[in-house]
Design a binder for these strands. Structure first.
Length: 605
RNA sequence: GGACCUGUAGCUCAACUGGAUAGAGCAUCUGACUACGGAUCAGAAGGCUUGGGGUUCGAAUCCCUUCAGGUCCA
C-alpha cells in the first residue's frame, strides 16, 4: 500500500514516545482508506488499544496527534471508531508520481519483453497441454489465457519465465482417430477437405465413437453386457492392437501417427496465434512417457513405495490424509502419475527451476496433491516449489455456440464468433468509415479477443464461471472493449494536443509546479501510484484478476477526471499540461496492464 | 461411501485474506449534450452473503452443522 512503510516506521516511533511500549511491525494493520472517509491510509487501532488499555478512540487520537508532529509526511487525520485515517502530504504523492514517470511507467511495456537479462533461476509455467485427437475447446481457452497472462505478470516482476507445453500425443485415444481415418477417411487431408488439421482429426475421433456405438449395440443385441460389448467390439480390439504396434515401433503406424499429428500441430499453431499465446518449449508425451519408471524403482529401494502381491507398485499417503495410490500397474506399464514424476525430475535437471507452476483444471486437484507428496517423500527438496494453479470450468448460456455433440465449445469457433461480434457492433456504432480495410480487420480482432480475454481473466480462477459472449463484448461496463476504448480516446486527446504549438515543454513538465490538487486528480494519482504494488500483488497471488480489477478502477477514475478536466484546446492548453501529463501516464499504465493480460490496445478505434 | 471446490443484488462478478454503511457492471427507473471521442457522466432502486449455531471489540471471510451445485477417488 502506498506509503505504508513510511507510516509504519513513524507509528512505531511515536507509539514508543507516547505509550512507552515497543511495537512490532506485525502488530500493525493498515488499509487503504475507504472513499467515504477522508484520508489516504488507515490504521486499525483496536489491537493497539487493547495493548495500552485505552479506548480505541483515545488511542487513535493520541497517535494521530503524535503523527502530526511530522507535517512533511502527514497533513491531517481523523478517528472513526477504531480507525485512524491518515492524510498524506500532497507533496509526497506528487514526488512519488514524478519518480514513477521517469522510472517505471514508461518502461512497462519494454520491461515485459526484457526478461532474458534476469540472472535468477527460471520459473517454469506449464499450460495448455492439449490432446492431439481433437481441437482445443473453451476449457483450453481459459487455461491458455491464464497461463499466458501469469507468465506476463511474472516477467514484468523480474522473473525469468519459461513457458512449457506438454502435448498428449500418444495412447489409445490417439489410435482411435488414426484407426477411424484409416478405415473411413478415403485419404482425406486438410488440403483436400479444406478442414483445419486439428478439426479433421477430431472429426475422425467422433467418427470412431459413432461406429463403435453401432458395433456395441449389435453385440448387446446378442446378449453381451454393455461393458463386455465395448471391450470386444471389433473397432476397440483393433485400436488396442494399433496401440501395441505403436509401442513396438511399427513403421507404418508410426508414419501415420506422424502425419496426422502434424496436421493437428498445424491446426493448433493457428489457434495459438489467434489466442496470442506461445511457448518456449514443447514436450511430447511420446518422448516422456517412459520416464519415471526408474524413479519408481528408486522409491522401492528406498522403501518409500511398496509392492502388492500382483506386482503393482503403490504409495501409502494415509498419514497425509490422502489414500493409497497406484504408481505402476501389475504388468509394469506406467500410469499418468508415473510419467508426471519422470517429467518433473527431468525438468528440474534441465532448468533448476525456482518454481514450477502447473496450470491444470481442478478435476486434477487430487492428482497433483499426490504427485507433490510422492516427490516430497522420494526426497526431492525442490518438490516444495511445485504449484498447481487450479481453475474451474467455463459454462455458456444454454444453446449458443454448442457443437452438434451438445457439450463441446470449439475454441476456433468461439474466436470467430467474438471477432464477428466485434465487427457487427462497431458497424452499428458507425465509428469507422472503412469497415474492411486491413486496419479495421485488425481492430475487430483486437476487440473480439480483448473482450474474451478480459471477461475470462477478471474472474477468480477457482470459480466456475459463465461466459456470455454478448455481455463480454459490451463497450460499456467492466469489459475489455471499454478499457480499450478509454485507452484509444486518451491517445486521441494526446494526438490532438501534440498538434498544438504549446506542446513544447510537455516532456520536461514536472508536477511540482502544481499547488492544489482537485479531488478527482488526487484520486487518479493515487491509483497511478499503486500500479507497481498491484503488479507485485498479482505476481504473488498468480492472479490476473487483480490486474483486471485495478485496470477497471483506473479507467473509471480516468473517465470521471476526463469528463471534468480534459479540455484541450489552443486557449487553455498552457494550463492543461498537468492534465495532459496525467492522461499520458494513464495511457501508459492502462496499456501496460492490458499487456499483462495479454490484451492488445488499439491506437484508434 | 470418503475427499476437495463453489454458493454474495434479477443476472455476471468484486470485497486488498478478520475491519468501517458488503461494492461494480448489465438489466430497470430518473436526470445531464451546440465545441471537447456521449462508446460519456450524475443519481435512484435493488442484500437476513443458502439456512442454523459458535469463536471476538468486529465474520461474506475462521470453526461446527444443514441444504444446493460441481469435481475427484475404487
Amino acid at each position: 500500500m502506498f506509503f505504508e512503510n513510511l507510516i509504519k516506521d513513524q507509528v512505531i516511533v511515536h507509539f514508543k514516545q507516547v505509550f512507552d511500549l515497543q511495537l512490532r511491525e506485525s502488530e500493525l494493520s493498515f488499509l487503504p482508506t475507504r472513499k467515504e472517509f477522508e484520508g489516504d491510509i488507515t490504521l486499525v487501532v483496536f489491537g493497539l488499544a487493547k495493548i495500552v488499555r485505552k479506548s480505541p478512540e483515545e488511542t487513535g487520537q493520541l497517535l494521530g496527534d503524535a503523527l502530526l508532529t511530522n507535517p512533511e509526511l502527514v497533513t491531517s487525520y481523523n478517528v472513526v471508531k477504531g480507525f485512524l485515517n491518515i492524510t498524506i502530504n500532497n507533496k509526497l504523492i506528487i514526488n512519488r508520481l514524478n519518480n514513477l514517470f521517469i522510472g517505471q511507467f514508461g518502461n512497462v511495456s519494454r520491461k515485459i519483453s526484457l526478461s532474458d537479462t534476469v540472472p535468477e533461476l527460471p520459473v517454469l509455467i506449464e499450460y495448455s497441454s492439449p490432446n492431439t485427437n481433437k481441437p482445443l475447446h473453451l476449457g483450453h481457452v481459459r487455461n491458455n489465457l491464464l497461463g499466458y497472462s501469469i507468465s506476463q505478470i511474472l516477467k514484468s516482476n523480474g522473473s525469468k519465465v519459461v513457458k512449457v507445453n506438454i502435448v498428449n500425443d500418444r495412447g489409445i485415444h490417439i489410435c482411435k482417430s488414426m484407426l477411424a481415418w484409416q478405415k473411413f477417411g478415403n485419404g482425406e487431408t486438410p488440403k483436400s477437405s479444406g478442414l483445419k488439421g486439428d478439426h479433421l482429426v477430431g472429426k475422425y475421433y467422433v467418427e470412431f465413437d459413432r461406429h463403435l456405438r453401432e458395433q456395441v449395440k449389435e453385440l448387446e443385441a446378442k446378449g453381451y453386457s454393455k461393458e463386455e460389448a465395448t471391450k470386444h467390439a471389433g473397432l476397440m480390439v483393433e485400436a488396442q492392437q494399433m496401440l501395441l504396434k505403436w509401442e513396438a515401433g511399427d513403421p507404418d503406424v508410426k508414419a501415420l501417427w506422424q502425419k496426422m499429428n502434424n496436421w493437428v500441430y498445424d491446426g493448433f499453431a493457428v489457434t495459438y496465434k489467434n489466442l496470442g499465446v506461445d511457448f518456449d518449449k514443447i514436450y511430447y508425451e511420446s518422448e516422456t512417457y517412459l520416464l519415471g519408471k526408474s524413479i519408481v524403482e528408486e522409491g522401492l529401494n528406498k522403501g518409500v513405495l511398496f509392492k502388492k502381491e500382483d506386482g503393482s507398485v503403490w504409495i501409502d499417503l494415509k498419514a497425509e490424509g490422502l489414500d493409497e495410490k497406484l504408481l505402476l500397474r501389475s504388468d509394469g506399464t506406467s500410469v499418468y502419475m508415473t510419467q508426471d514424476l519422470g517429467t518433473a525430475v527431468m525438468r528440474y535437471s534441465e532448468f533448476k527451476f525456482s518454481r514450477l507452476i502447473y496450470i491444470v483444471g481442478n478435476e486434477q486437484d487430487y492428482h497433483f496433491k499426490v504427485l507433490f507428496q510422492v516427490l516430497q517423500k522420494l526426497g526431492y527438496e525442490w518438490a516444495k516449489n511445485l504449484y498447481h494453479l487450479s481453475y474451474n470450468m467455463v459454462d455458456l448460456p444454454s444453446g449458443k455456440m454448442k457443437s452438434r455433440e451438445g457439450t463441446v465449445v470449439d475454441a476456433d469457433e468461439l474466436v470467430d464468433e467474438m471477432v464477428r461480434e466485434a465487427r457487427k457492433l462497431t458497424m452499428e456504432l458507425g465509428k469507422l468509415d472503412d469497415f474492411n480495410s486491413e486496419e479495421a480487420i485488425k481492430l475487430y480482432q483486437m476487440l473480439g479477443m480483448g473482450a474474451l480475454k478480459y471477461f475470462i481473466l477478471k474472474v477468480d480462477p477457482e470459480k466456475r464461471m459463465l461466459f456470455n459472449p454478448d455481455e463480454s463484448i459490451d463497450f460499456n461496463g467492466n469489459t475489455g472493449p471499454f478499457i480499450q476504448y478509454t485507452h484509444a480516446r486518451i491517445l486521441s486527446v494526446m494526438r490532438k494536443a501534440a498538434t498544438q504549438s504549446e506542446m513544447a515543454g510537455f516532456n520536461s513538465f514536472e508536477l511540482n509546479s502544481v499547488k492544489d490538487l482537485q479531488p478527482k486528480e488526487r484520486d487518479l494519482m493515487k491509483l497511478l501510484i499503486r500500479f507497481p504494488e498491484v503488479m507485485e500483488d498479482a505476481a504473488q497471488k498468480l492472479s490476473p484478476a487483480v490486474i483486471a480489477a485495478y485496470t477497471y478502477d483506473l479507467v473509471k477514475a480516468y473517465n470521471q477526471f476526463y469528463h471534468d478536466y480534459a479540455i484541450v484546446d489552443a486557449t487553455q492548453i498552457s494550463t492543461s499540461l498537468f492534465r495532459l501529463k496525467l492522461s499520458s501516464e494513464c495511457a501508459k499504465v492502462i496499456n501496460g496492464a492490458l499487456l499483462l493480460l495479454g490484451i492488445e490496445s488499439p491506437e484508434r478505434m
